[in-house]
Design a protein around this nucleic acid. Structure first.
Lengths: 346, 346
DNA sequence: TTTAGCACTCGATCAGCCTGAGTGCTAACA
DNA sequence: TGTTAGCACTCAGGCTGATCGAGTGCTAAA
C-alpha cells in the first residue's frame, strides 16, 4: 500500500473517484480531459489510466467502458487524497439546529440522531445505543404488576432507561419494594454494572445475607433485574435511501439489503467492531467480510461519556459514497452525542 | 353487489381466484378444465369466464392471457365463496407454542406477536399498541435525572409502560417526588387517562390547590407527565416478505413499499380506521384509498382489554393474498392478545 | 347446451444489426 | 522523451423482425 503515485496520477485518480462518486457511471478518458483539463489530451489520460489499472487502483467493467475505482483505489483516495474539511461554523449550527433534544429520553435521542444523520448525508443512518452492561448504576425502581411480577426500571448515570419485567417467588407489596429500591440505590450508586454484578454475587455468599432478610431479598431481586439480556438497541434510519442508490437497484439486491437491515444482527456485529478504536472509522466494501452487505461502505464513530457508557453511530451506503461529506457528519454527530451524554448527568 | 351467480359460475370463479392466489399468473380456461374438471371442456369454461368478465368479476391483462380476478371478484369470493375454517386444535396449540410471553414487557409482546403472525402467514405483520390516551391509570413514578429534569414512568392497568422526560421549574428531591407519586397513585388509581386529565384540570382550578402546596405541585407535574404525545407505537415485522411477492418485484414498487412502511404514518392511519368495528376486517386493494399501498390488502382485528386499552393488529400483503389462511390467524391472534392484556391485571 | 375446430391476438424470447462510447496501439510531432 | 492525433477494435445497449405459444372468440356441428 506504500506505493507512490506522481502528482499527475494522483490528480487523475482523484478526478476519476470523484466523478464516479457523483455519477455512478464508469469514467472515460475523454470526460476527464474535458471536465478537469490538466491540459492533457484524452490519449495521455488513457496512458495514465492504463498505469493506474496496472497498479490495481482502477478497473473497467468491460473493454469499451470507462474505468471505475477498485477498493484499493478508494483506500488510496481516502488515505492520501481526500482532505476532510471540518464543518464550517454555519454548517455546524445548521446541523445543531436540526436537533431538538429537550425533554427527550435516551431512545428518542438515538432515533433522532439517526434520522438527522441520514437526512443530511442522504445515506442510511445507524445508531447503536450504549449497552446495558457498559453503563453506570444510578437508580433502580420497582413497580408491582401482578402476583409475583415486577416491572424494573433501571436508570443509568447517563440517563439510559431500561424497563424489564421479572418474576419473583414472593409476592411483595409496593412498600417492600420501596425499601428494597432505597437500599439498592444507596448501596450501588455510581458503580459500573460489572462491579455491581460482582458485588451482588459476593454479598449473596456473605455471612450477613444469612440473617438480613431485607438485604437478601434485595440482592436476589437485583440480581435478576440487572442480568444481562444482551439486548442490542439499534436504530436504523433512512433504509429507503439505500434503495435509491443505482448499485442496489435490482430486485435481488434490494431484497438482500432489506433483509440485512431487518434482521439487524449483521449491522450490530459491524458496529460492535468499531467500538474499540478512537475517532472515525471507515470500512470499505469487502473489509466488511460479510457478503450480505457486499458493495457497502460503513463510516462509524463511537460515542461515550466519561462515565463509560459507550455506543456507536455511523452511516452506511454504497462503496461509491461521498466520503468527504459523510465523514465530518459522523465525526461531529458522535461528539455531539457524547456531549449530550455528559450533560445528562450534569 | 347483490348479483347472483349460478353454481357453475361460482365454482369457476372460485377456482380462478384460488389458482391465481396460488400462482400469481393469469388463469386460462384450459388450466381450469384440466385441474378442476367440473366435466367441462375449455370452451365451455371460456363461455362462463366471458360472462364473469362481462359482470366485472374477472379481467384479462391482455387478449391472449388468462383471466385474473378483479377486486369485485375478490369481494365476491370472500363474501360468498370462502369458508374460513377455524383453526384446528392442533394448529392452535402450535400457534400458541410460538409465543413465549413470560416475563416480557408490553412492547416486547407486541413485537413478538407481529413476528409470529408474519412468520405463520408469510406476509407482513402489523401491531399497533394501545394508545396512551386509551389506557387506565395504575401507577406513576418519578426519577430525578438532573436539575429540573424528571423521568416519568407511567404504568397502565394492562401493563403498558411509558417513559417520558419532563422539565419542571422547581428542583425536586427524590423524597418530594415520592410524596408526589404516592399522592397521585392514591388519587388516580383505576381512572381512565381521559378522566384523569379532566380531574387534574378541575382540581387545578379548585380552592384547595391554592393553599395545598403538595397537591398543587403534584397536579402540575402530573399534568405535564400525562400530556398526550399522540405517539403511536407501530411494530412492523417481515417487511422483506412483501418484497418476495411477484406483484411487488419491480424496483419502483419495492421502493414505494419500503418508503411506506418506513414512514409508518400511512399504516397507522389504516389501522386506526379499523378500531371501531368488531371482529376481523378486510380491506381489499383500492378500498385503501391511499395509492401508496396500491395492490395491497389488509386484514385486521382490534384487540382490547375489559379496562379499555385498545390496539389493532393485522397482516398486510398483496391483494392476491391467501385469505383463508390469514383470516383465522389474525382472528385468533387478536383474541390471544386480548386475553394476555386481561391476565396482566389479574 | 356443449364442444371441437380454427383464425386471430399478443406477450415473450431470441437472433441479428447498428450505434456510440471507450480503449489500445502506433506513428508523428514538439 | 513525453504528448498527441489517428485508427482499428471491442462491446454493451437499443432497435427490429421472426418465431412461438398460450389463450381467446367465434362458428358450426354434435
Amino acid at each position: 500500500m506504500a506505493e507512490e503515485l506522481n502528482e499527475r496520477s494522483q490528480n487523475i485518480l482523484e478526478a476519476i473517484v470523484e466523478d464516479y462518486i457523483a455519477s455512478a457511471e464508469p469514467v472515460g478518458s475523454r470526460a476527464i480531459s474535458r471536465r478537469h483539463g490538466f491540459n492533457l489530451s484524452p490519449a495521455s489520460v488513457r496512458n495514465v489510466m492504463s498505469d493506474l489499472e496496472e497498479m490495481g487502483f482502477l478497473c473497467s467493467p468491460h473493454t469499451s467502458a470507462g474505468r471505475i475505482p477498485t477498493e484499493k483505489g478508494y483506500h488510496y483516495y481516502i488515505d492520501s487524497l481526500l482532505q476532510v474539511r471540518d464543518l464550517s461554523q454555519e454548517e455546524e449550527s445548521q446541523l445543531r439546529k436540526n436537533y431538538r433534544f429537550k425533554g427527550m429520553k435516551m431512545e428518542d435521542i438515538m432515533q433522532e440522531v439517526g434520522r438527522v444523520m441520514s437526512g443530511l448525508s442522504n445515506y442510511t443512518g445507524l445508531v447503536m445505543a450504549p449497552k446495558f452492561a457498559s453503563t453506570v448504576f444510578r437508580q433502580i425502581e420497582f413497580v408491582r404488576l401482578s402476583h409475583g411480577r415486577l416491572l424494573v426500571i433501571y436508570v443509568s448515570e447517563t440517563g439510559l432507561v431500561q424497563n424489564k419485567v421479572i418474576e419473583v417467588d414472593a409476592d411483595l407489596e409496593q412498600r417492600d419494594l420501596e425499601q428494597i429500591s432505597n437500599y439498592l440505590n444507596h448501596e450501588l450508586n455510581g458503580m459500573s454494572i460489572l462491579a455491581v454484578r460482582e458485588k451482588i454475587a459476593r454479598e449473596l455468599k456473605s455471612e450477613r445475607a444469612r440473617y438480613d432478610k431485607l438485604q437478601k431479598r434485595a440482592l436476589r431481586i437485583s440480581s435478576a433485574a440487572l442480568q444481562d439480556e444482551a439486548e442490542e438497541l439499534l436504530f436504523v434510519s433512512g433504509t429507503s435511501l439505500m434503495l435509491e442508490q443505482p448499485e442496489f437497484s435490482t430486485p435481488e439486491q434490494m431484497r438482500r439489503i432489506i433483509q440485512t437491515f431487518e434482521s439487524k444482527k449483521i449491522l450490530i456485529d459491524l458496529l460492535d467492531r468499531s467500538q474499540n478504536a478512537q475517532g472515525v472509522q471507515i470500512f470499505i466494501g469487502s473489509q466488511n467480510q460479510d457478503c450480505q452487505i457486499e458493495g457497502c461502505s460503513l463510516i462509524t464513530s463511537k460515542f461515550s461519556s466519561q462515565k463509560g457508557a459507550v455506543g456507536t453511530l455511523g452511516v452506511i451506503g454504497p462503496v461509491r459514497m461521498d466520503y468527504s461529506q459523510v465523514i465530518p457528519i459522523v465525526d461531529f454527530t458522535a461528539q455531539l452525542v457524547s456531549r449530550i451524554l455528559e450533560r445528562e448527568v450534569e
